[in-house]
Design a binder for these strands. Structure first.
Lengths: 132, 132
DNA sequence: ATAATACCTAGAAAATTGATAGGGATTAAA
DNA sequence: TTTAATCCCTATCAATTTTCTAGGTATTAT
């Protein structure tokens, strides 16, 4: 049960944006340079984060990406759910499970799912860059 | 961040063994039949669980697998750590991370790791088959 | 105009996971 | 003592997912 690199990389990028919150937009090459990630791969992650309304961007020369809300108002949970396309650890949590009632293990997954979300929703981007 | 089918299948098999705890060994074909899993694949999962001392087996005709401890003394955490080869959601948790001190995200992973284990260690196999 | 940027889509490469196959060793029971 | 049922071991294939690369288009400050 590993987090994908999308989650890890994307969260790093979000930290970078948070560090410069209020200073205008950061360009893709800049973020890639700071986080040591491939520009093209990072671009795809940022597009996901944008689709989910966590960041926004301005196009054209001297354009770039920036947080849509303040770092203290964005939780790690939101970011990871966006990048990982949900944090459901088993498929029967999303979609309907037909034998939820008789399945011995359903309860485990649903409890774990709640705990994971609770934990991650309790950490803000601001705490992250300040080292709680 | 998905649990692999090893974890899901293996836990199912463990439930089956728990249901018949104290009744002697269950054969691979029997367990596969009850859980609707491929014999050969399940065999590999059981061998992992055996290596990690959660189950034991007797060979030869009328042999089979059985729990090494009572269902109330085996936690879901133990089972999943065995099958998933640890529950570290990122690699820097296992192995040493060289820049643990400067990394903004290390704290998140380590906190989440603790929560996941705490949650799963708090559920016993017995609770599972009895529906807590 | 130009150069720097975000945006979009297709697909290759690599890694992981899921599953199959076949044979060997052991042992209860006929 | 033979037989059949079982666990044990290892190799390998197939499918899926993840990671990453490539190339072009649209937009905009300078």
């Amino acid at each position: 049960m590993k987090l994908s690199s999308k989650g890890r990389y994307g969260l790093k990028a979000m930290c970078e944006l948070a560090k410069h919150y209020g200073e205008g937009a950061l360009s893709l090459p800049y973020i890639a340079g700071e986080t040591l990630l491939s520009e093209k791969y990072l671009e795809q992650l940022l597009s996901v984060l944008k689709k989910d309304d966590l960041i926004d961007a301005t196009r054209g020369a001297s354009g770039g990406y920036f947080l849509k809300r303040a770092p203290e108002d964005i939780s790690v949970g939101e970011i990871l759910r966006s990048l990982e396309n949900g944090l459901e650890i088993v498929d029967c949590l999303s979609g309907e499970c037909e034998n939820k009632s008789t399945c011995h293990t359903y309860g485990v997954w649903s409890k774990l799912y709640r705990e994971i979300n609770k934990c991650l929703d309790g950490i803000s981007l601001k705490e992250l860059i300040e080292g709680e």
